[in-house]
Design a protein around this nucleic acid. Structure first.
Length: 669
RNA sequence: GCCGCCGUAGCUCAGCAGGUAGAGCAGCUGAUUCGUAAUCAGCAGGUCGGGGGUUCAAAUCCCUCCGGCGGCUCCA
């Protein structure tokens, strides 16, 4: 949409109005009174409309949606029996879910060829309005469309069908005027997707992904960007920097940290340990294995048994821990706490093991074992808000330190008040007034004291907890959106998202409120009136897992980590071996200053030594030769490849400051 | 677990209408002593992911298992 509105008369076609105004751009649809209309549509009243350009946000979405139709058209041409489900535009392209036999990559090329053929013929795309009955008749052979028509079109109402040549689809549109508008597209992959029918049944469909752009240049750029993202892949960079290995034969899904990677973990742990201490978190240590009795009580056994590493020994069942919280609970309940002692805040860098299914494991973002910077606060409900504020501050501080000014956003996940049966809520018996907590979806709601089936729901606990979380976010003025129904079954939660240097969104840590575990383990404290009161638990992780935060760091910085985190802070390269003596003096001085330094004493050429060290992404490379020896200086090259000449003293002072302040920027160069 | 693609030297990859393996980088040895991304030469390195089958003959074709990648589902 550009410039000023164009006038249109009642009943005039938008395309005709464009001609009348001698419109020069490439419009795909028209915006009239805030709604989008096909260009072939007529204006319902007199007024002004704005042409929506192909090359605009709305335009690209419409283009991609039309490309999804083009895809469906091509599939039906080649596989007449295929049943279409849904084909929306996505953030970077489109897909269509289709009930058909599996598609090979060869067939994908055939489909793409057919799409180009239809595009070249420039087939007009036409909208037809049909009544619900007509729609049901037209799509009677496609149960997926029938399902949608029944769901979205009211009885006696009508909706639209879009037709291009031999192909029609039930769709509200709008669409580009003809298939010729869709020229720069590509099918990118085939996947399977599950379709949940209304009766709960699941059906596996073929999902074909593609993307489309207004011009060839943008399409090319898209693939260049994809390659850029692939170059940042932490698996690739991590192996170049010698951080970790994945031995898929002997340890599938279990990352093994080499010295450089272990160093990064060490640095992050020590940073978080300080932050924990400053915020009143004490550190505990719990074992990796517990008797299965505990997992049965915690509820993990029932729900996650198939994802746990279990074993039997001498007739007893054991499980390797998939979570740290039960261990912390056992520590908490070793004694009786007074309200004066709360909150009790236990933290641990706890490594957990979860058997992720074969198709789910991958890199550091989804390993089968990972270390959480875990923490559990045990407190009274009226302390929740203050504690959440403190934890949110820890988030902000740590992410600013690690990533600088990247955009962080928050999500508040709440109970679905209309459908509380999937959540752990308090019920009040209408007969005897007894209160009991349970999840209605797990079993029948029977009052445990009188056996009555009459009860009412009490959401006050959920409400005060949700209010505390919301109020903490508001207090800190943090941007957040609320998602009712997304809460964990045992309590509401806050999730944190980070947008990285190339615009990708990562989910980081979560803060979860938990009413379930405290009641399962009967955790109480003595309140000011001397009564036993139930404890509320907060589960929190700031980094989430070390694995994940390391992956994000590497992908965000493309491996060129801030100096305080870089495993290799300085590499010294003598121009030739004759300057090794001077280089060794420098190395010793730097080592004494606590800097992680490596001296390349090989007899290779300077160029070769530079080339070889590059993949390790050192923070600084110091080259020394005749000039430096003579002047008693160092030639320093930083991560951005800027070269400057400094004295050893000046270099040490600056880099020490850079490391001490955990600067994400380099101060030399 | 499901769909698609893939698995050849430490790494990146070639070889695949079937005739029991090849390159570059890395490694080692030697020469070169060099000013900010490719100095030269030589050497060594692989039961072609595992198992089974077809065949006179399998890295190549078929089956199966194990892994990896992209999605789906899941992610306490």
């Amino acid at each position: 949409m550009s410039g000023e509105g164009l006038s249109i008369k009642t009943g005039e076609r938008f395309s005709d109005a464009l001609k009348r105004h001698k419109y020069k751009g490439i419009a795909v649809v028209a915006k009239f009174n805030g709604s989008l209309f096909d260009l072939s549509a007529t204006a319902p009243s007199e007024g002004e409309f704005f042409p929506v350009e192909l090359n605009s946000e709305d335009g690209i979405r419409i283009l991609r949606h039309s490309a999804a139709h083009l895809l469906a058209n091509a599939v039906i041409d080649i596989f007449p029996g295929a049943l279409l489900n849904a084909g929306p535009a996505t953030d970077d392209g489109f897909f269509y879910d289709i009930d058909m036999p599996p598609v090979s990559s060869e067939q994908l090329k055939d489909i793409e060829r057919e799409m180009h053929r239809i595009s070249n013929r420039d087939v007009p795309i036409q909208r037809t309005v049909m009544t619900k009955d007509e729609l049901l008749e037209k799509f009677k052979n496609n149960p997926y469309k029938i399902e949608k028509i029944m769901k979205y079109v009211p009885d006696g109402g009508s909706s639209s069908v879009y037709t291009q040549g031999n192909f029609s689809d039930f769709c509200t549109g709008p669409h580009v005027p003809s298939t010729g508008y869709i020229r720069y597209f590509s099918l990118t992959s085939v996947a399977s997707a599950l379709h949940k029918k209304d009766n709960g049944e699941e059906k596996q469909l073929v999902r074909i992904y593609g993307t489309a752009f207004p011009d060839e240049e943008s399409l090319k750029n898209y693939f260049v960007m994809k390659e850029e993202a692939a170059k940042r892949d932490h698996r690739r960079i991590g192996s170049e920097m010698d951080l970790y290995v994945f031995d898929s034969e002997n340890a599938p899904g279990f990352p093994l940290y080499a010295p450089n990677g272990a160093l990064i973990r060490e640095i992050l742990i020590s940073y978080m340990r300080d932050l924990n201490r400053q915020n009143g978190w004490t550190e505990v240590s719990t074992p990796h294995v517990f008797r299965d009795t505990m997992w049965k009580r915690s509820g993990h056994y029932a729900k996650y048994r198939s994802d746990m590493y279990l074993f039997d020994l001498a007739g007893d069942g054991y499980a390797i821990k998939p979570m740290n919280c039960p261990g912390h609970i056992l520590i908490f309940r070793r004694k009786i706490y007074s309200y004066r002692d709360l909150p009790v805040k236990l933290s641990e860098f706890g490594t957990v093991y979860r058997y992720e299914k074969s198709g789910e494991v991958g890199g550091l973002t989804r390993p089968r074992c990972f270390t959480i910077d875990d923490g559990h606060a045990f407190l009274a409900m009226d302390q929740v808000r203050t504690e959440i504020i403190s934890i949110l501050r820890m988030f902000m501080e740590s992410f600013t330190t690690l990533f600088g000014d990247l955009e962080i956003s928050y999500e508040l996940s709440l109970i679905d008040r209309e459908n509380p049966e999937n959540f752990l809520v308090t019920y009040v018996c209408r007969k005897c007034g007894a209160r009991f907590e349970m999840r209605a979806s797990d079993s029948e709601l029977v009052c445990p004291s009188c056996g009555s089936l009459e009860h009412s729901v009490d959401l006050s606990k959920w409400d005060s907890a949700s209010d505390a979380l919301r109020s903490a976010l508001l207090h800190l003025n943090l941007p957040f959106r609320e998602t009712p129904g997304d809460a964990a079954f045992y309590g509401p939660k806050i999730s944190v998202y980070l947008k990285d240097a190339i615009g990708r969104k990562w989910q980081l840590s979560t803060i979860q409120l938990d009413f379930f575990m405290p009641s399962n383990f009967d955790l109480t404290y003595i309140d000011s009136k001397g009564n036993r009161s139930p404890v509320v638990m907060i589960h929190r992780a700031v980094f989430g897992s070390l694995e994940r935060i390391i992956a994000i760091l590497i992908e965000n910085y493309s491996g060129r980590l801030p100096t305080w985190i870089a495993p290799l802070q300085v590499v010294i390269i003598p121009v030739t071996e004759s300057y090794l003596g001077y280089a060794e003096v420098l190395k010793r001085e730097m080592m004494n200053a606590g800097i992680r330094v490596y001296l390349d004493s090989s007899s290779e050429t300077l160029n070769k030594k530079l080339r070889q060290i590059r993949k390790f992404r050192p923070a600084y490379i110091c080259v020394v030769g005749e000039n430096e020896v003579k002047e008693n200086t160092i030639s320093v090259r930083n991560r951005a490849d800027n070269i400057s000449t400094v004295t050893l003293k000046g270099f040490l002072e600056t880099i020490e400051k850079e490391i001490r302040t955990k600067s994400i920027n380099q101060l030399v160069g």
